[in-house]
Nucleic acid binder design. Sequence first.
DNA 1: GCTTGCGCACTCC
DNA 2: GGAGTGCGCAAGC
Length: 407
Amino acid sequence: MSEPYREWILGSIDSLRSRKARPDLDRICRMVKRRHGSDWDRTRSELEKLIEEQTVLKVNYKGSVSYRNAAKVLRGRRKPEQSKCAVKQPSLADWSTGDSALGPVDEEDHMEDMEDEMSTTAGMDSSMDEEGDESSLDAMCAQSTADSGISMSPITSSNTSQPVPSPTSSKNSPTHDSLRQDADSTYILPEHTQPAAQQDTGSVAFMQQPAAICLSTLQAEEGPRVEESVLGPDPLLSDCTATTVSMSTLRFQSQHNICPVPLGHIVSVCLQDEAVMSDGGPHAVSDPVEEGELCTKSTTEEETMEGNNVNNGGMNNGNDVVKKEIGQDPLLWSVADVASYFSSVGFPEQALAFRTQEIDGKSLLLMQRSDVLTGLSIRLGPALKIYENHVKVLQRSHFQDDSRLFS
DNA sequence: GCTTGCGCACTCC
DNA sequence: GGAGTGCGCAAGC
């Protein structure tokens, strides 16, 4: 995805929306071509890429396809504090809000979690069919999208080949009917994310929800028993042993505003567990270096320690100056230090979010991409920069230091 | 002909 | 009642 196209397309979508025109493919391509001289097909292909990476959401609104700027949809209709992603059993009506096609608040989060926890997604026909297959309509998955007000079906993983557990999946599910009746607008995932099984039925209302999230959500109610076997351990929390699952659940709940505990508390608790273990506590691990490695792996799979030692992810020397001013070891940073750091590197508004979530240095070092992108309720653009250029860099350098200490 | 602005109706919360 | 959405029309270029 070339960066100009991202801006061009998002700009076009925003522009169309501002003048109350439907941001459909035709208008978007036309506007991009007119403004930037871009080839129609190229625009379309770039738009597809944006859809795949969830920057743009493809929605079916009143029988026609529209496109949404995901970053804006994320901050759409419902205020974060109004998040209804509670542990209650949601009805599909909760997430099939008719023609008001609004943002999947945690969509990015879900996708990120899926990236973190699952390696592949199943194919999915991007063509929209309003007849949702109830077998795929996992209400619990829907729950995590309740904020969006968008009709979404859960996604199943070709990786696990397991249908998402659906306590409410029933042919007679009334919520299914409500979905069919009410889902004027539905978000459409890229084809590759749609499960083949759904294609067979041709009845997928919308596949947006990674199974990982569905399972995590289920765990919130049913207890921690699935995650490890199905999803694998949370790379960041994997050594928290007894607390692993509950921490994951708490993280999920916090990110979806259903947990009263600030995100910073959750990651801090896990860090403390790790500290105990590293100190030779009851859950002591044999090799402390593994801790750092595990956490380092939480960045991206393909980035190895060796391959990224030099690349600081865009963190410039000015940031190092800030780091020096606050203190070299982020582990010792207070919440105020963290906020001060991000304020100093040009994210004063986002620094407030870190403060609100009580992210101290320990928490910061444990944050995952999804935590930054969605757990803080900050805009996607700055969030990406913050994670890639700062959080990731700080984590990498910190755990590299740790590795050197223990080696 | 194309783009833009916007009144209005619809829908959801 | 507020807010998101977009159809349909008029105005401007």
